[in-house]
């Protein structure tokens, strides 16, 4: 395949959804006359993703992330705009396209609830027409990497969330997709399981050159996995680039923290930068990037100075600020003329 793996131009998706007031009276009334409202989930979204990239989709709840993934996977039809994935228009459901992608959703399952996962693997082998030697090789590889040798033989309903998600991933990867859509794959998992899945996804991307498009509410997932992020809010594209570039734009100050026995007085600290925290013997400052060397040289001279760190602001804070700015901009724009 030549060219980008994913090309999206002017993508718009609107849903018509029923609405009613609370209560029995409204429920009865809705039996005869139902009100509908049109919700715009995505507004003229455009981006391209190269083959082999790992891209994080970020945005608050209802931003349009999952809708975008479902359109890319061919499940939903766009209201306007064009989408091409692996060179195909997803909505045609060309078998070549369906063999080249996989969608894993943390809150839905494809595994048969009452049967061991290995039975669903076998079903996928037949449906995806995977020849037996390839199937055995891939399954062996996935079993080893995901450590599911035992759990895949137990009924799915008896598995923990993390074990089930590992089996879901195995089921999704048996046909060797070159594009992997992951929608909240680590939701509800403990930290150890999150780290394990994260590492697996990274390895899969590196070993197979697969394009990975990930949505997650856990910023650590995105920060650890995705060199590039696409931020959407209320269906609009807010940012497309690296986390560093986003941080520079939204929170350009560097975060400097240090532990010391005796911290300088607050007047002196205010001269160094903006104080974020001074609790528990730890000083955290937001510092202008040009002044970082100077501030560091002051801090290293503090008595019993240790654990000096210079970093960007956490991605959560950057995102919070980006979204609050977006809301403020939208609020200003939607103010009727003459309003205060």
């Amino acid at each position: 395949m030549s060219g980008p793996a994913v090309v999206v131009e002017g993508l718009t998706k609107r849903f018509r959804v029923p609405r009613r007031e609370a209560g029995l009276k409204a429920a009865f009334a809705a039996l005869f006359r139902r009100d509908y409202t049109e919700v715009t989930a995505i507004r003229e979204l455009s981006f391209a993703i190269e083959a082999g990239e790992r891209v994080g989709f970020l945005g608050p709840n209802g931003a349009g992330k999952t809708t975008t993934l479902k359109i890319l996977a061919g499940l939903l039809y766009p209201t306007a705009g064009t989408v091409r994935v692996s060179g195909y228009v997803p909505q045609t459901r060309h078998h070549g396209f369906l063999r080249s992608i996989s969608l894993v959703m943390g809150q839905k399952r494809q595994l048969s609830w009452d049967l061991p996962a290995v039975d669903t693997f076998e079903l996928n082998r037949v449906v995806f027409e995977i020849d037996t030697p390839t199937y055995k090789r891939r399954l062996g590889e996935l079993v080893e990497r995901l450590e599911i040798g035992e759990v895949m033989r137990q009924p799915v309903r008896t598995l923990s969330l993390g074990e089930r998600m590992k089996c879901e991933l195995a089921a999704a990867l048996l046909h060797g997709p070159s594009i992997l859509f992951l929608d909240e794959p680590t939701i509800g998992m403990d930290v150890a399981m999150q780290l394990s899945l994260r590492e697996f996804i990274r390895t899969y991307n590196e070993n197979h050159g697969a394009t990975v498009i990930l949505t997650s509410h856990y910023m650590e997932d995105v920060a650890a996995l995705c060199p590039r992020i696409i931020v959407i809010d209320d269906g609009n594209l807010r940012f497309d680039g690296s986390i560093e570039a986003l941080t520079r734009r939204i929170r350009p100050l560097r975060r400097v923290s240090v532990r010391a026995v005796d911290l300088p007085p607050s007047e002196r600290l205010a001269q160094l930068g903006s104080v974020v925290d001074t609790g528990d013997g730890r000083l955290t400052l937001d510092v202008d990037p040009g002044r970082v060397p100077e501030v560091v040289s002051v801090l290293v001279q503090l008595p019993d100075c240790r654990d000096l760190e210079v970093s960007d602001a956490p991605l959560e804070e950057v995102m919070r600020e980006l979204f609050s700015r977006s809301r403020a901009d939208a609020g200003t724009a939607s103010q009727p003329e003459g309003a205060a």
Partner: peptide, 18 residues
């Protein structure tokens, strides 16, 4: 109703047959 038709539609075969 539950949206799990997603996984049926993602399989490379005629959706109606599936």
């Amino acid at each position: 109703r539950h949206g799990t038709l997603d996984y049926v539609l993602l399989r490379p075969a005629d959706a109606l047959l599936l």
